[in-house]
Amino acid sequence: MSYIHGYDPETLREIVDPAECRARLQEIGQQRSLPALLERVWLLKVLGELDEALSLSEQAVRLARMAGTRKDLLRARILHATVQQWRGAYGAAEHELTTCAAEAEGQGWAGIAAFALQHRGKVRYDAGDIAGARADFKQTLFLRQEAGASDTELEPTMRCIEAVDRRRHEAPVAG
């Protein structure tokens, strides 16, 4: 079940039903598996409980490092970076996502690389780096198209490109 009901066209953040997310948190409880930890982190993040999300995301990264695969570790690090982004730590988030994207690309994991680049684009968007955000979203789109993603799977990235283009055209021209 997807808890994402869309994306805010201005912030690019997920639109969720808080009641659904809280109910899912109750279902998961204190499960300690990596998938459960990652899901809890995401749910806490979208609910705005960022201190707890950060603490759990650090725990998830440690667990993935000790007991997961390299792909698991990259996913945990990407999620950790998104929590940093939501907390306003754009530099740290961008750095983490850059290293994750590079490692995923080096391993030939286009899906994970696209995931990292999509999130790095959102970090750059939040930080006001519109050109960097657009480049990341375009690269994400290219990677996902090359991987054979459906139109539905490409839609969130297309919306991000549209939002960047809107913001770019709304920005005053320096003179």
Results as ranks from 00 to 15, higher is better:
S57H: 04
C100G: 09
D126W: 09
E49G: 07
A114V: 07
E103W: 11
R70H: 04
A114I: 09
A23H: 00
G175N: 11
Q107Y: 07
G29C: 01
G48T: 09
P172V: 09
L154F: 08
S2Y: 06
D126A: 14
Q26I: 11
R22F: 11
A93C: 09
E170S: 08
T11K: 05
K138V: 15
L56I: 13
R159I: 01
T140Q: 00
V46T: 10
R75H: 14
E58Y: 14
W86A: 12
D126V: 04
A113M: 06
Q31L: 14
V16C: 02
G148Y: 05
E14M: 06
R87G: 08
L54S: 12
E105A: 15
A127K: 12
L79S: 03
A104Q: 02
L34N: 01
A171C: 01
S57D: 07
S150Y: 00
R65H: 15
A149V: 07
I78A: 14
G106A: 07
E10Q: 06
L154K: 08
R144H: 05
L12D: 01
D151W: 12
A135W: 08
W42M: 04
Y3G: 13
P9I: 00
R13S: 10
D126Y: 09
T11W: 00
D129I: 03
I4T: 07
I112K: 02
R65W: 12
Q145P: 08
A149Y: 09
P172I: 03
R32C: 10
A127Q: 13
E49T: 10
H95P: 13
A110C: 00
V164K: 03
Q84F: 03
E27H: 11
V61K: 00
F115S: 14
C160F: 00
R87E: 06
R168D: 14
L74S: 07
A113L: 04
K45S: 15
K45N: 14
A93H: 07
V61A: 07
L44Y: 13
P35W: 01
V16N: 03
L97K: 09
M158K: 14
D51K: 08
Y125P: 00
Q118Y: 10
R70K: 07
F115P: 06
D126S: 12
H169I: 07
H95G: 15
A104K: 01
G29W: 11
W109K: 07
E27T: 14
A102F: 12
R75V: 11
H5A: 08
L56G: 08
L12V: 00
R167P: 02
T69Q: 01
E146A: 15
A89H: 13
E96C: 14
R40M: 02
A101W: 12
P9W: 04
L34V: 02
E58S: 15
V16F: 02
Q84M: 13
R24V: 05
T157I: 11
V41I: 07
A36R: 00
D72M: 06
Q85E: 12
A92R: 14
A81G: 09
L44D: 12
E105M: 11
P172S: 08
R13A: 03
W42P: 05
R62W: 13
R168T: 14
